[in-house]
Design a protein around this nucleic acid. Structure first.
Lengths: 344, 344
DNA sequence: TTGTATGCGTTATCAT
DNA sequence: ATGATAACGCATACAA
């Protein structure tokens, strides 16, 4: 900018004025300055500007797993909305690791992001501490986090898996296995609660051995599913608490020589773009990905736009059961139907 | 820092010295300063630091589509490596849009990133211009870009689809449809060249009507596949130039009432984690995702570490054909085999 | 309308 | 070993 000012034979203040359109400058000088800018190839330095203004026009975004299509879909939407509003997005992923998450939030804060959108890796006592040291707006997505009282957009996880599990139960399944997420995530807890609720509503006893824990990733889920499948009394259906884990479940089913849905029914949380074209066509709980991203971004923009008063706003969206063909009626029901029809 | 200095009754220079360990400070003062830091909850401001040092320890990363699992896998690896080396990553996605890409690269540059890793949306004359105004190291991944002479890690795309197409041809297919990526991307061109090469090597005439163009996304590919499938003389196999597009292809096949592999064979570029567990089990060209990410990050770290001399280093990795069951021998071959066996 | 001067939070140079 | 001070590039209050 100094160079521009020198070349145009004006002061830096005047250059700043034309660059930002912040004050009236005579046409003559404006022209000279713009010429100089083009000549020099001047770009204003966002870092220096941030330092002066105390704002970076950057939003920090951390997710547990950038490899998970649910997160990337949401991230894409958030990025799109925020970008349109003139904000850049700084994205970090922490591999479902809480310490890494803390580091990254700190990193983002050090860089003076104007806001923070977090899909928490899990319950994190430190996060609360780190956050309360600052006053940047924070919005949580996907998962809640104990003690972090901020805007949030989440799903009604409990209800969603209640519905899905109930569907399985209505199909006549009595032993439905459950691959759970970790219980130190709100989604892990809420989804499991939905499963228990459905069992209870149907008057079926909850069995410890039918639920196994994964970490929302494929590998762990594979092992968990294997345990389920090698039970002396095998479940006739399995529900996976997220998308990545269902891959592990399907691999376990294949490796053990069974097939879905003939031998065992499978359903899961999170939808796939290809779910209705590859077989078995998975029955899933679809999340309103676009809405989640848009709402989260909007919540953030509202806070950024001065709406910092008012308590935390919590949006809870609803999932949607996508019934496809990976679940079949249990043998007992089929049997019943046959008898009713006078068959056999 | 002022506050810390005041609280510890020392100068800012001394505080800086203990924070950065950049000069010897007496134990007494060190203790007092550290106490004050803890007391105040002081965090050094990365923005101010960047302004002073001219370095941000941040790498800009732009990809065409954050929704594409290939890119996210690579991004995850890059992020992991870079993070371990103490760099933050600022990720942008441009939705395969060149103008957005230019904006974002400029944005990243304005923010003084120390380096730029780009998966170019397509040939982009402006990109070259934008880049040559700066001297931050740049590494291209996945796609090359005319005129941008920098480090790069790409795949031997031509060879990879040559092999895949040849495989289809060996199966006896004579009319293999091809869903191409846009020709303004190097991957679009190189992969198509591989297809043509395979045809030529097999002595089969190239037919214009058998290749349709998509934009590496599902929706366009669906339309393109529909055109292929409604040809008076339908192809007996289809190759999709990337992962997202093959979903569109499969949907078209389903919607038109055909099934794969019984009625038509399908193969594609890019592998899926679930490819060998859902049916049809897709035959694909797997890219060495981890290697791509690691090499790209390493190339960047090398440049950052002073290795800025030397011309552009270009790494070309090899893909790997994963033969599964979405492709079947063409009827003519089956016929031939039967006759040879004395059947029918 | 235009220019001068100050400060944003750091680090680095140079005295002390 | 420690402190005063300049400079990074920009925006702005105030002076002219």
């Amino acid at each position: 900018m100094l160079h521009v000012a020198a070349a145009a034979r004006v002061s830096v203040a005047t250059v700043s004025a034309v660059v930002n359109g912040t004050a009236a400058v005579s046409p003559a000088l404006t022209a000279r300055i713009e010429a100089a800018i083009k000549e020099i190839g001047y770009k204003r330095n966002a870092i220096a500007r941030s330092l002066k203004l105390g704002k970076t026009r950057t939003i920090g975004l951390t997710v547990a797993d950038i490899t998970n299509p649910f997160f990337t879909d949401v991230v894409a939407v958030i990025q799109e909305v925020l970008h349109r509003a003139g904000y850049a997005v700084m994205l970090c992923c922490n591999d479902e690791n809480i310490e890494t998450q803390d580091e990254q939030v700190q990193l983002l804060l050090d860089r003076m992001v104007d806001g923070l959108i977090i899909a928490p890796a899990g319950d994190d006592a430190n996060l609360e501490r780190i956050l309360q040291g600052t006053n940047v707006p924070v919005v949580l997505i996907d998962r809640a986090c104990d003690g972090v009282e901020t805007d949030a957009v989440t799903l009604d996880n409990q209800r969603a898996v209640f519905d899905a599990a109930t569907y399985l139960l209505h199909l006549g399944h009595r032993r439905v296995g459950y691959i759970s997420g970790p219980l130190d995530t709100s989604t892990g807890r809420d989804r499991l609660a939905g499963y228990r609720g459905a069992l209870e509503a149907a008057g079926i006893a909850f069995e410890d051995q039918l639920v196994r824990f994964g970490n929302f990733r494929e590998a762990e889920a594979y092992k968990a599913a294997m345990q389920l499948l090698t039970l002396s009394e095998r479940p006739t259906a399995i529900f996976s608490a997220n998308n990545l884990m269902v891959i592990g479940v399907m691999k376990a089913i294949r490796d053990i020589g069974l097939s879905c849905p003939e031998d065992i029914s499978v359903a899961c949380f999170d939808d796939f773009p290809w779910a209705d074209v590859f077989r078995p066509q998975l029955t899933t709980v679809a999340q309103p990905v676009r809405a989640i991203g848009e709402q989260a971004a909007q919540l953030m923009l509202d806070r950024l736009g001065g709406g910092s008063e008012g308590g935390p706003r919590r949006l809870v969206l609803q999932g949607r059961l996508m019934v496809r063909s990976s679940c079949r009626p249990h043998a007992s029901l089929v049997q019943g139907a046959r008898q009713a029809a006078g068959g056999e």
